[in-house]
Design a protein around this nucleic acid. Structure first.
Length: 712
RNA sequence: UGACCUAUGGUGUAAUGGUAACACAGCUGGUUUUGGUCCAGUCGUUCUAGGUUCGAGUCCUGGUAGGUCAGCCA
């Protein structure tokens, strides 16, 4: 009984803030069958993992409340929109497993929108403006400054009607006029300063052809489309928050009060670490051939993830565990990777493949003998089936799995050491054959004949610490294997105001292994099939794959505690593990609101600087790119514990440039440390003297000003 | 010098005025014919200062930090 209560309690999952709004509306009299949602992509690019958040939210709401969800293409700009994208978007949504109620297009409503525009003109609430876009921009003012009225603002209704007709008929050239709503040029919300409703474009539209010479703007289209479709909740991302006032204004002008009034609500777009989400930037990666296409397995697009081997379930689950909110976020890509590993761990068959082969000869195994071993696809899942794996005298193992000498932490094969071959025998390494460079090219072993896996003998039950995967050389089949790493080396490549995201491209994001060796059971795989290559990772069959030339993508590697441990040992051999700690303290410093925490952080950083050489600091400065890094490196320069030497011109320029940028940073702690640095090393004063003088008067931060006064 | 939005572990989200919770990542151990999986343990003054209240992560005020807004893009 108690257990049951706990279960019920667990079922009662907490609501996200959108669901709370809906529950509130329901409580206030909205009928449940009035609920209706929409997903409104613009067909000018491919869907990415950020869109998946919106898709899962909207379609998830539809599922939760048993309400219809429309797929509406927001196609009001014929310049950038294409059928190719419409098709790709539909495919992605279907692949994710969602079903839309109606497939609709904003362009379906062009006629209605036009008639409503006429109505607004007749009511004196819209006017034709003959000015250029530059003139309109100048009159618009700024966020802190009111705009001024257009000289065409008070044209007569008749004149407006006549000119709008000329716009529509094609008589007015492109860009010569626009239709604007007459609201308020002094409105604090920029979107309310007489927004453009229609522009002239003599372009063919992918749906309406050349029927229209004028096209409505987003704001004049979106809310009206929601209204026409009786959408109850129109959910979009946060940057549209300030559009909401206009959304509501337009709605009030055209709506029948008896009908449902759609409600726009906004949530924060989802960012993923080590990648970008901007459609424009993704397009650039495609067009400039940094990747092979929108579906390159390194792309954060749905099609890229699909090709990489991600399952729809894993992506939907990722959206679920990520949740939604209204704050800026960068979700760790490790969470996405966890979701696909979690799914594939349960479903992917385990097989053996050797990527970097090392020949291993079992000297006491008969030359021509072949044993066919029945190997389970998954030792830990019942009824997962099995396949036949041939075993013979000569096999390949992974180069990494053998060392001539190693300490006892190395569980793999070493000379005179024993290891289990997965599903087969226990072997012992006796000798090696080397090439002229001294590289091991062959390992000679003996096997324990009684130790065959699953044979039930005492010998087969012996515990040996390591187990290796392998393939029989004469039975192996070849394949190309593509290993992917993150596309960017920075956690948030497009968050740096002064640096282009392309600077952070990872030059080693793709490694191709032309000739990997697979067990023969993989001969007849189909495109898209997922496998675990035992001990290596999850792989799927790429669409480039053909029966005579198999191609696999590594979806994600298995967690590798051994590699991690080894790397750590290597790192700690160097004194520079202090850098990691310094970065942590710098992070704390920025986040801290408490002076004690800050003092503590900076004391620690100064102390840790003792372990850092000036050379390694210079290397770090070369690739500085975040507030935290600027702060840390400046503090290290200021610490007295690093022996600096700026006599080399190149070194001077590097640091001078670094300080110059830091002085202009938005973060006041960074500026303060930069100023402090100039105070300490006065040789950097000269190049920035004008800036420093300005800062001494008008810097926002009083500490910065005070410090400047000490030496200026 | 504007308006609006946001602030909870390293990261992402819960807690709907009443014991700060879950997941990921990290770290320590254990199990293991995958150094995988699994299991156990571990990591926080809820940005800050006031106020309201028996009680505040939550409400109010000020501050601080970050974000959004000046396309005839969406």
């Amino acid at each position: 009984m108690a257990d049951k209560n706990i279960n019920i309690e667990e079922e009662k999952k907490s609501l996200n803030f959108i669901e709370q709004i809906i529950e509130e509306d329901l409580k206030n009299g909205l009928n449940k069958n009035q609920l209706r949602f929409r997903f409104p992509p613009e067909p000018n690019g491919y869907l990415h993992i950020g869109h998946a958040a919106s898709i899962c939210l909207n379609f998830g709401l539809g599922l939760r409340y048993d309400a219809p969800v429309n797929l509406r293409f927001d196609d009001t700009n014929p310049e950038k929109e294409e059928q190719e994208y419409v098709d790709a978007i539909k495919k992605d949504i279907e692949w994710l497993g969602f079903k839309w109620d109606k497939e609709l297009y904003s362009s379906n409503y062009f006629e209605t929108l036009y008639n409503w525009a006429i109505k607004l003109i007749k009511e004196g609430k819209a006017y034709v403006d003959d000015q250029t876009s530059e003139q309109i921009r100048e009159q618009k003012g700024t966020p802190t400054q009111a705009g001024i009225n257009s000289p065409f603002r008070d044209r007569s209704v008749e004149e407006n009607l006549e000119l709008f007709e000329k716009m529509k008929s094609g008589e007015s050239p492109e860009g010569s006029r626009v239709l604007r709503a007459k609201i308020d040029m002094a409105h604090p919300n920029m979107h309310m300063r007489d927004p453009v409703m229609y522009r002239i474009m003599h372009k063919a539209h992918h749906r309406t052809g050349t029927a229209w010479k004028i096209y409505p703007m987003y704001d004049w289209t979106h809310g009206q489309s929601d209204y026409l479709e009786s959408i109850s909740h129109s959910i979009c991302t946060l940057e549209f928050k300030s559009h909401r006032e206009l959304y509501d204004w337009y709605l009030d002008e055209i709506r029948d009060p008896a009908k449902l009034r759609p409600k726009q609500r906004e949530f924060a777009r989802r960012n993923l670490s080590y990648t970008i989400m901007s459609k424009r930037k993704l397009l650039k990666l495609v067009e400039e051939k940094y990747v092979s296409g929108w579906d390159d397995p390194r792309m954060p697009t749905i099609s890229g993830l699909r090709r990489r081997g991600y399952t729809p379930e894993s992506i939907v689950n990722f959206s679920k565990v990520s949740g939604i909110s209204k704050r800026d976020n960068v979700t760790d890509v490790a969470l996405l990777e966890h979701c696909i590993k979690d799914d594939l761990n349960r479903t992917a068959p385990r097989v053996m493949a050797v990527l970097n082969p090392l020949k291993l000869v079992i000297t006491n195994y008969p030359d021509d003998k072949v044993e066919i071993i029945d190997a389970s696809y998954n030792d830990y899942v019942e009824n997962s089936g099995s396949r036949k794996v041939p075993f013979s005298k000569e096999i390949y193992i992974e180069q990494e799995d053998f060392r001539e000498e190693a300490n006892k932490k190395f569980f793999r094969l070493k000379l005179n050491g024993e290891v289990r071959l997965k599903n087969a025998y226990i072997i012992k390494a006796n000798s090696v054959v080397k090439d002229e460079n001294g590289k091991v090219i062959e390992v000679h072993c003996t096997y324990d004949e009684d130790s065959l896996s699953g044979s039930g003998t005492e010998a087969s039950k012996r515990k040996v610490k390591g187990t290796l995967h392998w393939v029989s050389i004469k039975h192996a089949i070849n394949a190309e294997v593509r290993l992917y790493d993150r596309l960017f080396i920075d956690e948030a490549p497009d968050s740096h105001k002064d640096k282009d995201f392309l600077e952070f491209i990872n030059p080693n994001s793709l490694t191709i292994i032309e000739n990997a060796f697979l067990e023969p059971s993989l001969k007849d795989v189909k495109v898209g099939d997922n496998f675990q290559f035992q001990r290596l990772g999850y792989f799927n069959v790429d669409e480039d794959s053909k029966p005579e030339h198999l191609v696999f993508n590594r979806t994600v590697a298995l967690k590798d505690s051994w590699a991690k441990k080894e790397n750590k040992n290597k790192q700690s051999a160097k004194p520079n593990s202090s850098i990691t700690d310094i970065m942590a303290f710098a992070g704390k410093y920025i986040k801290a609101r408490d002076e004690d925490v800050r003092i503590n952080s900076i004391t620690n950083i100064f102390e840790l600087s003792k372990n850092v050489s000036f050379e390694s600091l210079l290397n770090l400065i070369k690739s500085v790119n975040s507030n935290k890094e600027y702060l840390a490196y400046l503090m290290m320069l200021n610490s007295e514990n690093i022996k600096t030497d700026f006599s080399d011109k190149e070194v001077f320029d590097l640091v001078d440039n670094f300080i110059g940028t830091a002085l202009k940073m938005k973060n006041s702690y960074v500026r303060f440390q930069a100023v402090d640095c100039v105070g300490k090393y006065q040789i950097f004063k000269e190049n920035h003297i004008d800036l420093l003088k300005t800062m001494a008067v008008e810097d926002k931060n009083t500490h910065v000003i005070e410090r400047l006064k000490e030496f200026m």
